[in-house]
């Protein structure tokens, strides 16, 4: 199978091949929920949680599908598992912190269509990770996603106070800043083995 060390997998997923800035996964929440640091970090935590759960489930499903020889059901079963996990998280957040539930708004149910989550499940399968490697991969991916989101939120909080030409306001500005962030993350390239 695959014998990368857990440390390599974690650093690879979180920094070198950052899900948002190098793989372009989860751009929608990256543009949508990166207005405030607090919301961004909590969103990151929620996504990481969903990632880990669905990573474990995806591993189980993959073994099961291989046993009954039905790999064409892979995509469909992954997305069903992710959708149910998100539903679970949604109910949990609503019960525990209604304020956070409000702040995340539409982006909470939209974790289902967050490509980063589905990508974790798909990539771990194609890379042939075992269970422990898969969970590390999901944790690393989640950490990288949270890092990118929080960094962007911090930058945007500062940008609030600066004068920006009306032409560049909104998405265009966020994309420009994202590009610069992506450039700086390329500096991590030498880190991995």
């Amino acid at each position: 199978m695959n014998n990368e060390s857990l440390m390599t997998i974690f650093i690879n997923a979180s920094l070198i091949n950052n899900f948002v800035l190098a793989y372009f996964l989860g751009i929608c929440p990256f543009l949508g929920v990166s207005g405030k640091i607090e919301t961004a970090s909590k969103m990151g935590a929620a996504v990481t949680f969903v990632m880990v759960i669905s990573s474990v489930c995806a591993y189980g499903i993959n073994v099961l599908l291989a046993a009954i020889n039905a790999p064409f059901l892979q995509l469909i079963s992954y997305i069903v598992v992710i959708a149910s996990t998100v539903q679970l998280v949604e109910m949990f957040v609503k019960k525990v912190s209604p304020a956070l539930f409000k702040a995340l708004g539409i982006f909470l149910p939209l974790i289902t269509t967050n490509c980063a989550v589905l990508a974790i499940a798909l990539l771990q399968t194609s890379k042939g990770y075992d269970l422990l490697q898969s969970v590390t991969f999901a944790l690393g991916g989640g950490a990288g996603f949270t890092l990118a989101l929080v960094l962007m939120a911090g930058l945007r909080e500062q940008l609030e106070f600066s004068e920006v030409s009306s032409m560049a306001k909104g998405t265009a500005l966020v994309l420009l800043v994202g590009g610069i962030l992506s450039l700086s993350f390329m500096g991590f390239a030498g880190l991995g083995g």
């Binding site: 800035l21 372009f24 994309l175 420009l176 590009g179 992506s182």
Partner: peptide, 11 residues
């Protein structure tokens, strides 16, 4: 052609 270029082009 690197990821950063994608951000800049779309921006």
């Amino acid at each position: 052609v690197l990821p950063a270029g994608g951000f800049f082009t779309l921006a």
